[in-house]
Design a protein around this nucleic acid. Structure first.
Lengths: 113, 113
DNA sequence: TTGATAGTACGATGAGTATCGTACCATAAG
DNA sequence: CTTATGGTACGATACTCATCGTACTATCAA
């Protein structure tokens, strides 16, 4: 299989190991408003969702860019399923590596007053 | 007093109000390794410390840039004291605005195993 | 007043990045 | 095979940013 074929079949999708996930990279990935919104919506779902199910008025190319940024930082996991691509949060990995970070970012743990 | 004088005396140091602190801006400010290290060291101190007390092998200009980025994001507070400038974390504001975020970033809440 | 210390302003530079459009591929349905 | 759907690759553009060097200022001490 050629490199081009590997790219096109998505076999090369890079996901960092849990231990390789860098805090700075995660924070950078989350520091873009669009990506933050992607993560917020993914957090609402128990099921993985296809990339195209989100739309903020940017083009498909741009969405691909944001998904790749999140994936390479270790925030999301992606897998091809037929004609689309499923995406979900790497909750377990993030919680293990940076406990409380994702919850804090999602605001799912408001202060008990 | 002229604008130049105001700049030079540091009177114009901008600090966002607590309510104005943006999550994306904070995450961006923290996504740089140098700034992350600044925050980690500030977190170790109960007393404010002068800017110059940290050194990572970058120039003073670059340090000024990083401090300004942190300050304008609402992560730190700065105040002139004589010839130097004291810097400290805005812990209360960050904890109130994004509960758990700073602790998660600082890793001060490791998973109980 | 003279010097030393701590920090800023400004301009430049090189790298990164958010965005787009166009062309393309892969899979599934007809 | 043809077409539609969902997504990627690539190049371009404009913007941001991390870094530096130089010149400058403010404050304090001698």
């Amino acid at each position: 299989m050629t490199v081009v074929q590997a790219k096109l079949t998505g076999m090369e999708l890079h996901h960092p190991e849990r231990s390789e996930i860098s805090l700075a990279a995660v924070l950078h990935a989350l520091s873009d408003p669009h990506r933050l919104e992607i993560v917020r919506r993914l957090a609402e779902d128990s099921e993985p969702r296809p990339c195209g199910s989100l739309n903020f008025g940017v083009t498909k190319s741009t969405m691909t860019h944001h998904y790749r940024t999140l994936r390479e930082a270790g925030v999301i996991r992606q897998e091809r399923r037929g004609t689309s691509k499923l995406t979900w949060l790497r909750r377990d990995d993030l919680d293990a590596r940076f406990p409380g970070l994702l919850d804090a970012v999602l605001g799912s743990k408001p202060v008990p007053t």
